[in-house]
Nucleic acid binder design. Structure first.
Length: 192
DNA sequence: CGAATGATATACT
DNA sequence: GTATATCATTCGA
């Protein structure tokens, strides 16, 4: 079943990041259906978080989707090469988001392998946020679209991740964020 | 370890 | 309008 709006509209982005572990991210691009279970996430807590693009209420054309209602996609190009996919949370006007950092294939494996230019499904299939987006063909033209659309959506397969299987840690690649860089906003499912 | 690579934000003219 | 610094990274040595 597809995740309902009230899942995204809650006001605790850190809690939503943790709850997204075990959910299934799905895309249908060029007629190809691909699904991946989410195994790693990071929370970005809006205007007060120095690691967030929306820190200091910097509302620009790029960050605009984060100001939309929870359940919207925020995709942008990083380092000129990689598309990074985020789930917008909280009510409209509050720019909270969750970065999807890693996943495991559920279906459409052949398509993902081809997109990633790999032979076998190994640990290098989706080890980071850029590669997840590449495997699922997520691009910036999906930014601002609803996560219950025809091209991209998130399903709940009833998979329950126990607290004991989750590790929390500091976020990656945000050294510039000073004291906010140390926050435990990253969640990983063990057995990666 | 370090190059690749381009959109975007910001600070100029 | 034009210029330039800066990235929520990846891959191959």
């Amino acid at each position: 079943m597809i995740l309902a709006a009230d899942f995204y509209l809650r006001d605790d982005v850190v809690r939503i990041s943790r709850d997204l572990l075990g959910k299934v991210l799905c895309t249908r691009v060029h007629g190809k259906l691909t699904k991946a279970i989410i195994t790693e996430t990071e929370a970005y807590a809006g205007v007060t978080d120095k690691a967030s693009h929306a820190y200091g209420d910097r509302r620009t054309k790029r960050t605009e989707p984060m100001y939309g209602p929870g359940g919207t996609a925020y995709v942008y190009l990083c380092y000129g090469i990689h598309h990074l996919f985020n789930v917008v949370t909280n009510e409209e006007g509050v720019p909270h988001a969750v970065l999807i950092r890693a996943g495991n294939p559920v279906s459409g494996l052949e398509t993902m392998l081809r997109r990633r230019n790999r032979e076998k499904a190994d640990k290098k299939l989706m080890p980071g946020p850029g590669t997840v987006a590449q495997a699922l063909a997520i691009t910036t033209d999906m930014t601002g679209t609803d996560l219950r659309g025809k091209k991209i959506w998130i399903e709940d397969h009833g998979i329950v991740i126990q607290e004991s299987e989750i590790s929390a840690g500091p976020r990656v690649g945000v050294d510039y964020a000073e004291e906010d860089a140390a926050r435990l906003y990253r969640f990983i499912v063990n057995s990666h």
